[in-house]
């Protein structure tokens, strides 16, 4: 488990998120997608809940104590979870780093 201490730019966070998404859903699916900060997890990336669990675990493993990603998600209701997009996660991680 590698915990990072240096502050990442939003572009670096975006690339890291893309890498995690690729690891979770597989390269063959990611190739067909245009992943942007506006991409929503359920609608655009078509990730189901167990894949979002995997993705959350990757974030937790990477950032460690620095951010409480599951805690952040748990405050959301179903509508918010469905509409969750990459940009929102990037902003959250940036906030935690500042």
């Amino acid at each position: 488990m590698d915990t990072i201490t240096t502050k990442l730019s939003s572009e670096e966070i975006f690339n890291l998120m893309k890498q995690f998404i690729t690891e979770v859903i597989g390269e063959e699916f990611v190739e067909e997608m245009d992943i942007t900060p506006e991409s929503s997890f359920t609608k655009d990336l078509e990730m189901d809940s167990i894949e979002i669990v995997s993705f959350s675990e990757k974030i937790k493993a990477h950032f460690g104590e620095q951010i409480d990603f599951t805690g952040w998600l748990s405050a959301m209701d179903l509508d918010q979870l469905i509409n969750l997009n990459l940009g929102m996660i990037i902003s959250y991680i940036e906030e935690c780093q500042s």
Partner: peptide, 12 residues
């Protein structure tokens, strides 16, 4: 799968 609990129920 376990995600039915993971996001809201388990954290509380």
């Amino acid at each position: 799968n376990l995600s039915v609990y993971y996001f809201n129920i388990a954290p509380l």
